[in-house]
């Protein structure tokens, strides 16, 4: 009886985690992807708690749900700026090419 509850909980979390992983990959907009990635990290952390791994869950929550998505956001903001600048320069051919 107790086992059945655990099974349902774990099964549900597993399916949800796999679905969120799919969502992370299919979110092609990198800015939005960071948010989905954070949610995925959170969910994975919860799954780890359910799998009786509190140490790992703590690491996953701090790293996977916070630090890595933050790095992604920071990287995107810089990359976008660089890409926009290059495009602007291409549009104005009078300016030097390289």
């Amino acid at each position: 009886m107790h086992g059945a509850i655990v099974d349902v909980l774990l099964g549900g979390l597993l399916v949800l985690t796999a679905a969120t992983a799919t969502a992370v990959v299919l979110t092609r907009n990198a800015g939005r992807q960071a948010i989905v990635l954070s949610a995925y990290g959170l969910l994975l952390g919860l799954l780890m708690v359910a799998l009786q791994a509190p140490d790992v869950a703590l690491a996953q929550l701090t790293v996977g749900a916070a630090v890595v998505p933050l790095l992604v956001v920071l990287a995107i903001s810089r990359c976008d700026r660089e890409v926009v600048r290059r495009r602007r320069r291409r549009r104005r051919p009078r300016e030097e090419q390289r």
Binding site: P54, D55, A57, L58, A59, T62, V63, A66, V67
Partner: peptide, 14 residues
């Protein structure tokens, strides 16, 4: 208890 140098270090940093 759960946690340790690694997790704590990340918490400190963030």
């Amino acid at each position: 208890s759960p946690g340790g140098g690694f997790q704590g270090g990340v918490v400190l940093a963030t």
